[in-house]
Nucleic acid binder design. Structure first.
Lengths: 188, 188
DNA sequence: TTCAAAATGGACTGATCGTTCTATCTAGGT
DNA sequence: ACCTAGATAGAACGATCAGTCCATTTTGAA
């Protein structure tokens, strides 16, 4: 069975919102690019805001699930290293223009506070995921360390559009080693 | 003498563009908030694009100059530490919603490539500034190290809207120590 | 006091925004 | 063959967009 119209709309909207911005991308543009009637979109999503939320939810859920899977299926690497490696894969292939969530928070924090807050929630899920990976690796209840690791990943996201993904991924590994290595609190 | 109308427009536009987004902020909104006639704006700036560019230029120039001054006027701190401290001051007071340049690059990379490229140029100026500070501190020609330091600052910018400036500034110092400390290349 | 430059406010253009409506068409299951 | 649910194209809505024009008022320096 072909991808449903709904999925087509989500794919197209994700691409356009991510590459061209949320406010700068009109509904007409989405339906034209998706090859779908305008009312088809509105049958699946009650408003543009709802469409944006679905796009964010779907994309970031995939990203979080991907990181989770990387940890679960890692070989000899540490959990955090496996996670960072999977993040780097996103940087190389799907996330060359920064983090879609931070873009959305920036564009909607005033105009649609609920949307921005949902974005922050998803970001906190990433922080939790990092915390859990650190626990697996023997760093227990070190929230500050998790924040530092997250800052590495977000720094890479932010600078990818400036320095390019290639340059940025190699610094992720280097910084991860520095930040983990200089911690004396490891308990196993 | 009162601040010129031009400065008033720039102040207002900077605030609105930064807090509410570029595409989401109309000219009408800017002139209303600035308490200025629409034609006054268009007498000083030929287009919205020109206004955006002036806003970016002015704000980021101030930021870069500020970092430069911090290095020049530092006490016993290292150059990079003085720079990071000044960056943290921006995070606490003027830059709580992420980096205005990265926001602009995100919103304009497709619609106004020239604007986005100008943004990237200014970002490269920051990288140069960091490189120079590292040179002062005895790390010579280590471009990768400069990129790592920059990733710390940008990671902090990116996460400030999620974790808050307070949490983020303390991690900057910690990470700076890790990243500099784990380098064996220091030559003085 | 004079005079030019700067600023004003409001009308106006054509384009585009998100959203709704309607009438027609297409598919798939019974 | 029939029915229904979904998809279609396109017109239309009021609101807002960036940008222009203009006649009038305010300003500041000579």
């Amino acid at each position: 069975m072909n991808p449903s119209k709904r999925e087509t709309v989500l794919d197209t909207a994700e691409h356009l919102f991510y590459e061209e911005g949320f406010h700068a991308t009109g509904i007409d543009r989405v339906v034209a690019e998706a090859g779908v009637a305008r009312m088809t979109l509105y049958n699946h999503f009650p408003s543009k805001e709802a469409l944006v939320e679905s796009v964010l939810e779907r994309r970031y859920r995939r990203y979080l699930d991907d990181l989770h899977d990387a940890v679960a299926g890692r070989g000899n690497d540490s959990a955090v290293a496996a996670m960072a490696e999977r993040h780097n894969e996103w940087l190389r292939t799907r996330s060359r223009s920064g983090c879609i969530l931070l873009k959305a928070i920036g564009e909607f924090q005033r105009h649609r506070p609920a949307l921005a807050e949902r974005g922050r929630e998803l970001k906190r899920e990433l922080l939790t995921l990092i915390s859990e990976a650190l626990s697996i690796d023997g760093y227990h209840r070190d929230e500050a360390l998790a924040e530092r690791v997250m800052m590495i990943l977000e720094g890479a996201n932010a600078l990818a559009p400036v320095l390019g993904s290639e340059r940025v991924v190699v610094q992720v590994e280097s910084m991860l080693a520095s930040v983990l290595g200089s911690t004396a609190e490891r308990s196993s």
